[in-house]
Design a protein around this nucleic acid. Structure first.
Length: 762
DNA sequence: CTAGATGTTTACTGTT
DNA sequence: AACAGTAAACATCTAG
């Protein structure tokens, strides 16, 4: 297995390579010693067979030919969009003939490149059936297809491996037939990642409808994007995308309007957008997808109303609404940043650069825009981009870049700091109780830390929301959690929290429950749901024993589903803002209610395979994004400032400021992946929020102010903490700033909220 | 009942 | 040590 170990998104690494070399749009080349990407690829592909070399032969430049890792006699031919397909086919046909029976007789054509170049005409497209050998040529486009996939085809599910895939790339089923194949390419351009939802399938009718909606929504945002750019991973079809499974799952789910997707659809979406999985990856990738879904708390399984269909959703608190588009697109055009080095690959996002830049020196203004995300430059270059403009974001569905950034930042922070995790796993039963140790006692530190991250965001976010321009926020929507600690970190009620580390919650002493994970996540919403949730849990207790890392929970279908979610979901953040709504969670506010609390979700949080993970780190925060205005609003004490800084997000402005300070320097993400990966964590939020989007809706009556205040207070605390962990210097600052009194007060309140929240979690 | 899809967990391993 | 990817054992469910 591992040998090759692709473990991490290899991609990242690889990418670099390519860039320099390849880059070309046309990418190409095959042969390069560098090789085909394939080679680079990790393991999987490689392992098995190695790549074939490309045969240079007669093929036009830019074409890469790789042996399919799992299929015998099959090669994957990556061609630039602009390549003359016919000629390629002809060449392949000839090649196939030449090779004779022993040689490859099946070729999968994947077009990459952004541009679509469809061959107009009639392309022979694929398949040459003629061949004696019966070669099969399958064409696919790399890019993200759009969603076409959605509905897509029914791909045989598991089938990947061996067989030939026909691709059906297009999504539509229709396409399946070879005939179409080329045509598919056409879409490339368009496709984008939209994502559409992908999804598909049939499920109940009901579901269908829903989906449609989803899809549509999903698209909309995208629409904006240039076609060319597909978000996808254009580079090479053959290469493994630089995103982690967690990220891809998020992309998939977030591509739908409802922000939920069945497992099958997830598979389909990924295959559609990342041909590597469709053609090259070993079938085990699906196992990995399932593994990730189960492992990470951010992924919550819900069942359809009728109970027949199960959908995977992203816990609202954790959902940053990342979409492939976001990651990929260049949002910011403006920024120009430096040329980045690396990566440029694809359309690379400037962001990345940004990161770099940031560190280096962007002007403040520039910085602001940037999102924090950046991965470490050095390491990976992933193209991640976030949309620069908030305004753009407006759409509800949109994903919100900001948040991302924020989250990124947060994550980073988290990273630096250590993470603490506290989380408890929650159990269902327990949840109710949630006693919370309350915050107070709880390790504050820990809490802080955790929160810090999120909180930061949150706070702002809150404001934002309040203020919020609608636009931007979409993402924010989330409720935020402002405070909430990251998943991991949830404070556990137990005093001991700490340790958690790894296992955090689960194990943590506090809750003995063995696997509680599941807990219900449901949030508070309806009781009914909860019930349903309960269902979920069950399972294996026997085993349980140990700590499991996982989560398990099912959420009941959201009935509510409120729209909220979605809509805003992501971004939507809704409006929530509008006043009342607040982010829910916020502050602690209360939590009480059940609402928030419930969030048992907790589980959600961060789990990673390792428990510790970090997800959290990330951030959760997306929400954070707050608008600048907010900042002002806030007011809180001086402290805030730091907050801003920390908080990621708050606005750019703040960031800028921060940046000025040492804070800025904080690295954001190491890699793009992180961003993606990171889970949201916000989980913490949950507590408060838990708020699923829906929750968010909740308007909290509380006026914003109060909330805010409290928040702020909390924040400050947290911030301070955060700082500590994070940067020394910063921390110092914070510390100074913080007021004891506040803290306490805050704590109090905060704690309360936490507690409230927490309980659930726990 | 069986097969397959779906979910959960655990264990390992390679990276960073 | 933390992560992420992979593999695999099992458990559940559902369809045939």
């Amino acid at each position: 297995m591992m040998k090759t170990s692709p473990r991490r998104p290899l991609i990242l690494k690889r990418r670099r390579l390519p860039l320099p070399v390849q880059n070309a749009p046309g990418d190409t080349a095959e042969e390069e010693p560098k090789g085909a990407p394939a080679q680079q690829e990790p393991a999987q592909a490689q392992a098995p067979k190695e790549v074939a070399q490309p045969n240079p032969c007669k093929f036009p430049a830019g074409i890469k030919i790789l042996n399919h890792p799992t299929m015998p006699n099959t090669q994957v031919v990556v061609v630039p969009n602009n390549a003359n397909i016919q000629s390629i086919i002809t060449a392949l046909t000839a090649k196939g003939k030449e090779s004779g029976s022993s040689g490859p007789n099946k070729f999968i054509l994947i077009s990459c490149g952004g541009a679509p170049t469809p061959p107009p005409g009639p392309q022979p497209q694929a398949r040459t059936s003629k061949d004696p050998k019966r070669m099969e040529v399958i064409t696919e486009t790399l890019g993200p297809k759009s969603a076409a996939g959605d509905e897509n085809l029914p791909r045989p599910a598991g089938a990947l491996p061996g067989q030939r895939w026909k691709n059906c790339a297009g999504g539509e089923a229709a396409s399946c037939p070879l005939d179409n194949s080329l045509t598919n390419i056409q879409w490339l351009g368009k496709m984008t990642s939209d994502g559409l939802a992908s999804c598909s399938i049939k499920q109940e009718v009901e579901e269908k409808e829903n989906r449609h909606l989803e899809q549509s929504q999903a698209k909309s945002p995208q629409v904006e994007r240039p076609p060319g750019a597909s978000a996808a991973w254009p580079d090479s079809a053959s290469e493994r995308p630089p995103y982690s499974y967690m990220a891809m799952i998020q992309f998939a789910i977030n591509s739908t309007e409802r922000k939920r997707m069945t497992l099958k659809d997830i598979y389909t979406w990924i295959e559609d957008h990342f041909p590597y999985f469709k053609h090259i990856a070993k079938p085990g990738w699906k196992n990995s997808i399932r593994h990730n879904l189960s492992l990470h708390d951010m992924f919550v399984r819900e069942t359809s109303a009728n109970g027949k269909v199960s959908f995977w959703t992203i816990h609202p608190s954790a959902n940053r609404y990342l979409t492939l588009d976001q990651v990929f697109k260049p949002l910011d055009p403006g920024s120009a940043h430096s040329p980045e080095h690396s990566e440029s690959q694809k359309r690379p996002n400037p962001d990345l650069r940004r990161n770099v830049a940031i560190k280096t020196e962007l002007p403040l203004g520039a910085r602001r825009k940037m999102k924090p995300l950046l991965p470490r430059v050095s390491s990976y270059l992933v193209p991640i981009q976030f949309p620069a403009n908030p305004s753009l974001v407006l759409q509800p569905s949109v994903k919100v870049p900001l948040p991302l950034a924020a989250s990124l930042m947060s994550s980073e922070l988290a990273r630096h700091s250590k993470r603490v995790r506290i989380a408890p796993k929650v159990l269902l039963a327990d949840e109710g109780a949630a006693p919370l140790p309350t915050a107070g006692p709880v390790t504050e530190e820990k809490l802080l830390l955790t929160e810090g991250l999120s909180p930061l965001l949150p706070v702002p976010s809150i404001k934002e929301e309040d203020v919020q321009p609608g636009e931007e926020t979409p993402h924010l929507g989330r409720p935020i959690k402002v405070e909430s600690p990251p998943l991991e970190e949830w404070p556990s009620p137990c005093p001991s929290v700490k340790e958690e580390s790894s296992h955090s919650w689960e194990d943590s002493s506090c809750s003995p429950t063995p696997r509680p994970k599941k807990a219900s996540s449901t949030g508070s919403r309806s009781p009914a749901r909860r019930v349903s949730d309960l269902l979920v849990i069950k399972r294996r207790e026997g085993r349980e024993m140990s700590r499991s890392r996982r989560k398990q929970h099912l959420m009941p279908p959201r009935l509510d589903e409120p729209e909220l979610l979605l809509s805003e979901g992501p971004g939507a953040p809704q409006p929530a803002l509008a006043g009342p709504p607040q982010p829910t969670c916020q502050l602690g506010s209360h939590p009480e209610d059940g609402g928030p609390f419930k969030t048992p979700i907790k589980e959600m949080l961060p789990t990673s395979s390792t428990p510790s993970k970090s997800a959290l780190p990330m951030t959760p925060e997306s929400w954070r994004l707050t608008p600048p205005a907010k900042v002002g609003g806030l007011d809180f004490s001086p402290v805030r400032i730091p907050q801003g800084a920390f908080g990621p997000l708050p606005d750019s402005l703040e960031l800028a400021d921060l940046s000025a300070t040492p804070l800025k320097s904080i690295p954001l993400f190491d890699s793009p992946r992180e961003l993606l990966n990171s889970e949201p964590f916000d989980l913490a939020t949950d507590p408060f929020s838990s708020c699923p989007p829906s929750d968010m809706e909740v308007p909290k009556p509380g006026s914003p102010e109060p909330q805010v205040a409290s928040l702020s207070a909390n924040r400050s605390l947290t911030e301070g903490l955060i700082l500590d962990t994070m940067n020394d210097s910063l921390s110092k600052i914070l510390l100074d700033i913080s007021f004891p009194g506040l803290e306490e007060d805050l704590l109090g309140p905060g704690s309360v909220s936490w507690t409230q929240c927490i309980p659930d979690l726990r």
